[in-house]
Write a protein that binds this DNA or RNA. Structure first.
Lengths: 216, 216
DNA sequence: GCTCTAATGTACGGACTAGTACGTTAACTG
DNA sequence: CAGTTAACGTACTAGTCCGTACATTAGAGC
């Protein structure tokens, strides 16, 4: 049989994938400037030569890592299934799923933080990422429309605002856990806090959208 | 007169201060690993030799930058005067002040983001920062107690949670503006969005604390 | 099996970068 | 105004790090 064997010694796909995987860890851990090409090579079965063979430069490797990470995240977003729920529960569930999602993709969070330090210059160099629409915005918009129509939501807010509010909470809890922990002595990643904060983000966005008119 | 003149050529205080100032810009712009000691020196009236004379190493310089930045921020927090307001307005105003504060200290925000990428290892090395209490927590606690006593706040939340919620929103808007802008085409720093988001953070925290029991 | 090329390994270069050895001078003290 | 020292400048080093020239081989197609 001439089918590609799992044990074959030369396998472009596999080598490329391994480089991306190891590189993501290294970049997430040390930032762009702090990441070492030699270190990435040392953690692989292959050599530094291959990194340049497949990606050309440290920067293009970094961009490839970003593209892969964003692609995976988008895939998860696409599978969020909350539209069968009533608006209040739909938006609460979406917030909690976003929370779980941030909780589960810490390396991605770090890459985003790193990219912001560099003012997103690498994302802007990538045609793939620059044109990456986000289906979650459409989803939020439909939920908001539905909630406004039924009168459950009274606060005027657009989908981007709501997405931002949810993301801010979830992102901060993961991205800033270290300085927050050092300064306030609270580990936001610990199970007991994690569970409470998860409920909090749902309550927060629902309360906000239901609006202030409670003394009516 | 032997008073130190503004034009004197040798002035330890002034040199030290200038190094810290330039270093803060350089670290905030490029991250810890990306910052160049030579570049800091090139942007000053003095030389690299002085950086090592006063701070000993790149890392100790970085820690000194962090300490100074945190000290300034704490000073601002200390001057927040909202306790004469009723609980709802107090917490709303505090949120908006926090918003303004983040808006005005972008370099500090970046330093915090950078420090989190390094898992706060430098903060933990600093005795000054490790023991930096935060008066804002006491303030929030008093507001919450007051609001709970008057029945205006029904949601159970502690001061750290509320502080986290506010900080997350304000921090994210500044820290993630670049990737957010690149992906969603919205500049959260633009004046029109800035003003709306400022109202949003106040509304958000007030709505959350007032709680869900509006259909009573 | 032979050939051709994609895939891989080795060894090194050139530029950069944190840190320092050594020398000098301004300014305070008495 | 002489002596002392804190403050400062120059020139260099040792090591690091991205990138590459050159050599080699596995495997696909004929």
């Amino acid at each position: 049989m001439t089918l590609p064997q799992a044990t074959r010694q030369r396998d472009a796909e596999r080598t490329r994938a391994e480089i991306l995987e190891v590189a993501q860890r290294e970049f997430a851990r040390n930032g762009y400037a702090g990441a070492r090409v030699d270190e990435i090579a040392a953690l692989m079965r292959t050599t530094k030569r291959m990194i340049y063979y497949y990606f050309g430069s440290k920067e293009r490797l970094y961009i490839a890592v970003l593209e892969k990470a964003y692609a995976e995240v988008r895939e998860v977003e696409r599978t969020a299934d909350v539209e069968h729920l009533a608006p209040v529960e739909a938006i609460r569930t979406l917030a909690e799923l976003t929370f779980d999602h941030h909780d589960a993709h810490r390396e991605f969070i770090k890459l985003v933080a790193i990219e912001n330090i560099h003012q997103a210059e690498h994302i802007r160099k990538s045609e793939v990422l620059a044109n990456l629409g986000t289906p979650v915005l459409d989803l939020i918009e439909r939920i908001l429309d539905s909630g406004t129509a039924s009168g459950e939501f009274v606060t005027e807010a657009d989908a981007i605002d709501v997405h931002m509010m949810i993301s801010a909470f979830c992102f901060f809890r993961v991205a800033n856990q270290h300085t927050f922990g050092a300064l306030f002595g609270r580990d936001m990643a610990a199970p007991e806090h994690r569970a409470r904060l998860r409920r909090m983000v749902g309550e927060m966005v629902v309360s906000y959208l239901k609006g202030p008119d409670r003394s009516a």
